[in-house]
């Protein structure tokens, strides 16, 4: 299953990911991304990929397990 990764140091709290895929991305009180799931299904991958690509600092990636 595809694995969600985040570079928490790079995250700037722009929050596009949360808007695009609120079931896998959230943001904490300090404005840093929170991963709500470790893995996603292949079916949801395209949409989550688009959410990851909406990150202005490319802090989000999806890797093959």
């Amino acid at each position: 299953m595809p694995v969600l990764k985040a570079n928490f140091e790079a995250c700037q709290g722009y929050a596009n990911c949360v808007d695009a895929a609120p079931e896998v991305y959230d943001i904490d009180d300090d404005g840093v991304v929170v991963l709500l799931k470790a893995e996603i299904s292949d079916e949801e991958r395209p949409r989550i990929e688009e959410a990851a690509r909406s990150c202005p600092v490319s802090a989000l990636t999806i890797e093959d397990a």
Binding site: G13, Y14, A15, V18, D19, I27, D28, D29, G31
Partner: peptide
């Protein structure tokens, strides 16, 4: 300003 959590809420 400096409050991304509120931004997320407002955007919704």
């Amino acid at each position: 300003v400096n409050w991304p959590k509120a931004l997320v809420q407002c955007r919704r």
